[in-house]
Design a binder for these strands. Structure first.
Lengths: 230, 230
DNA sequence: CGTGCAATTGAAAGTACTCAAGCCACGTGG
DNA sequence: CCACGTGGCTTGAGTACTTTCAATTGCACG
């Protein structure tokens, strides 16, 4: 099976379910407190000391890096239950920002890592999360390295649809700029791809941040098929 | 500090040393046997059952995915001591191939994962390896998503130079095609970038598979500086 | 009903790709 | 010993796609 096909597999419970840690990490809830952030607020900055690891309770968070010239690469978006701000060093590797109003649980990094290393249960679960995340990172590398703009946008919409478990009125929590920065494109190219999908009736967009997929096979075909999608 | 700068940090012992597991995993050496592969031989194929995890004893291995149209994305190259063939599922996510004559240690996957989950020591080490790998995967996403062909090639040469701890007569274990597939470029584009670097005396290439870096600051500048590198 | 930001569209420019051919080192066989 | 064939690497010309720059539209808000 090819890497491209994997991109559609988020829908598959066996890959996605295991990457969702439980909503509260056993034995650590006591030492963790919850913070709230408004949409657009920064949670931490690349290079910061990293005393905590974080878990989304409510809302959506993005992690990104900024290049010298101001361009960004969005590493990932995190929804309810997902961990972020994890690194092997004691400094943050990304900047994290709320893209919707958020509640975020903060686990002391040392406690979390210690708890993980002494509990076989937690260890297994955490390893699984990391391996799944690495897996997805590599699928994204295929996307960034080998897929056309249209294919990237189509694959991104498919991923959102599978995450929200629906093909109707799917919410786009992030801006066009965030999507572009995630897919390695410019905002204009994202717009043009969306416009083309709309014109071909592959997607329906009642407003700029909501869409539906009438026939997900057509979208799949665009995401996985020939790169010449005109 | 930006993600781009991280790309040069492989030279830094604090990031690279921790990602190297010891040469034999304690308590598992008994159940692991060593296999040998000639350059070009396939070790396992994407989708295969994954009864083992592997560790390079000698030589160099690449892991890659093949797309429907035959193009490839090389996920990574692995040198002495590095683990590969790791996934959260019990099937291989990539195809692995020796790009030089290799000796490879095979650990039964279940034993390895079990050993890791019950030993705090191993658990910590394995987590560290995975987090570092995720970190590097994300740096590569920045590269694939945001850097020009010339920047990608320059960054790749810098990485090789730091891995081999030298700036003289650095070996290119992999073919131009492998480099192209790793960087998300075509073989021709890689050639042109190398030719340009040679013409500008940024690198010296006594032969196609060996190069030296007279002044690594210039190369750094090309990798991290303005994308207009003409 | 302006203001301001996000999203969209258009036109021109540029970068990397495709296709095609030439080059080079190496191994084989006459 | 040299012609020949092979595979990997390099170069050239034309093309296609994405970006850049610029302008317009749409929408929420005071």
């Amino acid at each position: 099976m090819s890497a491209l096909q994997h991109l559609g597999e988020l829908r598959d419970p066996k890959t996605s379910a295991t990457s969702q840690p439980q909503l509260e990490i056993a034995g650590l809830a006591a030492s963790a407190n919850v913070r709230r952030y408004k949409s657009g607020e920064t949670i931490f900055v690349e290079g910061d000391a990293a005393p905590y690891c974080y878990q989304v309770v409510t809302g959506v968070v993005k992690e990104y890096n900024t290049l010298e010239d101001g361009r960004r690469q969005v590493a990932d978006f995190y929804g309810i239950g997902e961990l972020f701000g994890i690194s092997e060093l004691d400094e943050q590797l990304h900047t994290a920002e709320a893209i919707a109003d958020c509640a975020v649980r903060c686990y002391p990094r040392d406690s979390l890592l210690h708890a993980v290393s002494v509990s076989p249960e937690l260890s297994h679960q955490f390893l699984d999360t990391l391996m799944t995340r690495l897996h997805h990172a590599r699928e994204r590398m295929v996307m960034l390295g080998r897929m056309s703009a249209m294919q990237r946008v189509a694959a991104f919409l498919i991923r959102l649809s599978s995450q929200q478990c629906r093909t109707d009125n799917i919410q786009l929590a992030m801006s066009r700029q965030d999507i572009a920065d995630h897919l390695g494109l410019t905002i204009e190219t994202v717009c043009r791809a969306l416009t083309e999908l709309r014109k071909k009736d592959v997607i329906i967009m009642p407003s700029a941040r909501v869409f539906s997929i009438p026939d997900d096979e057509i979208l799949d075909e665009i995401a996985h098929g020939s790169s010449a999608a005109h």
